[in-house]
Measured scan of single mutants.
Amino acid sequence: SSGGSSILDRAVIEHNLLSASKLYNNITFEELGALLEIPAAKAEKIASQMITEGRMNGFIDQIDGIVHFETR
């Protein structure tokens, strides 16, 4: 797709992000992006959206560029 990722790509990214949230206590956007094979800024945006929508527990430290995952 030309304008970003398809629905399937997005679903795969979100699935992998949720998997990462179970493996890590926290991770930088750079590391997360590398893990998900997407730019760091996109990793931040998707993580932020999932947390806001209540689909993933955690919070974002924008100063240090880190996602902190919280286990249920």
Rank of each mutant, 00 (worst) to 15 (best):
N57H: 13
D61P: 01
S19E: 15
I51M: 07
L17V: 08
V67A: 03
F69K: 00
H68K: 05
G4I: 10
A34W: 10
I7A: 15
S21D: 02
D9V: 06
I60E: 00
L8H: 11
A47M: 07
H68I: 08
E37C: 07
G4L: 09
I13A: 05
R72I: 14
T28N: 05
I46Y: 09
P39G: 08
A34Q: 11
I66M: 09
L23H: 11
S2D: 14
T52A: 15
S21M: 10
M56F: 11
T28I: 02
G3F: 07
E44G: 11
A34K: 14
F69A: 02
N26T: 14
R72D: 13
M50Y: 03
E37A: 14
F29Q: 01
D9N: 07
M50W: 03
A20P: 00
H15Y: 13
R10V: 14
K22Y: 09
S1V: 13
D64C: 09
I27W: 05
R55Q: 07
P39T: 13
R55K: 10
N16F: 12
G54L: 05
A41E: 14
T52R: 09
L8W: 11
S6C: 07
D64Q: 15
L23Y: 10
T52F: 11
S48K: 10
F29K: 02
I63F: 08
A40L: 05
A11Q: 13
D61F: 04
F69H: 01
L32D: 00
N26C: 09
G54D: 04
K42P: 02
D61E: 05
T28H: 03
E37D: 15
Q49F: 05
R55S: 06
E70R: 10
Q49H: 06
A20C: 05
I38A: 01
M50V: 02
I66Q: 06
V12H: 10
I13W: 06
P39F: 04
F59Q: 06
I7R: 08
I38H: 01
A11W: 13
F59H: 11
G58C: 03
I27K: 04
N57M: 09
K42C: 06
S6A: 11
E37N: 15
A20N: 05
S1P: 13
I13S: 03
A40H: 05
A47R: 00
G3L: 13
D64E: 15
G33S: 08
T28F: 03
G65A: 05
I46W: 06
G3I: 13
E53F: 04
A47I: 10
S1D: 14
E31A: 12
S21W: 04
A20T: 08
L8M: 09
S21G: 07
S2H: 14
G4C: 07
L32T: 00
L36A: 03
M50D: 00
A43M: 05
E37P: 02
D64I: 11
I27R: 04
E31P: 00
E14I: 07
L17C: 03
F69R: 01
Q49G: 07
E31N: 08
M56I: 15
A34I: 11
E70L: 10
S48T: 11
K22P: 02
G65L: 05
L32K: 00
K45C: 06
E53K: 03
A43R: 00
E44R: 08
L23K: 12
A34D: 07
S6P: 12
E53M: 05
A41L: 09
E30H: 08
R10L: 15
E14V: 06
V12M: 09
I63K: 14
I7P: 12
E53W: 04
L32V: 00
I38C: 04
S2N: 14
N26K: 14
G58Q: 02
G33K: 02
L36N: 01
D61K: 04
H68A: 04
N26F: 15
R72L: 13
A34E: 09
Y24S: 04
T52M: 12
I38S: 00
S1L: 11
E14L: 05
T52W: 10
P39C: 04
D64P: 06
N25Q: 14
G33L: 02
V67C: 03
V67S: 02
E70W: 12
I51F: 07
G3C: 07
E37S: 15
L36P: 00
G54H: 07
A47F: 05
N26L: 13
I46S: 01
E30W: 08
F29P: 01
A11H: 14
S1R: 02
N26S: 15
S19W: 11
S1Q: 11
I46K: 01
I46D: 01
Q62R: 13
L36F: 04
E44D: 02
M50H: 01
M50Q: 01
A34G: 06
L35V: 06
K22W: 08
N16G: 10
E37W: 08
V12S: 10
R10Y: 14
A40C: 04
G3M: 11
E30D: 09
I51C: 03
S6H: 13
S2L: 13
L32Q: 00
L8P: 13
I38D: 00
F29G: 01
I66Y: 06
E31S: 07
G3Q: 11
M56V: 11
F59D: 04
A40W: 12
R10H: 12
G4H: 13
I27E: 00
G54P: 00
I7M: 13
R55A: 05
A43Q: 00
E53P: 01
I46N: 00
K22Q: 09
G3V: 14
V12K: 14
N16H: 11
Q62A: 12
I66D: 02
Y24L: 07
R10G: 08
T71W: 11
F69V: 02
I27C: 05
S19A: 15
S1N: 14
F69T: 02
G4K: 05
H15M: 13
E44K: 10
I60C: 02
A47K: 00
I66L: 09
D61L: 05
K42W: 15
Q49E: 15
E14M: 07
I46E: 02
D64M: 15
E70I: 11
P39Q: 05
T52S: 14
L23W: 08
E30P: 05
E70K: 11
I63A: 11
T52G: 09
K42T: 15
H68E: 04
L18I: 11
S2P: 13
S48Q: 14
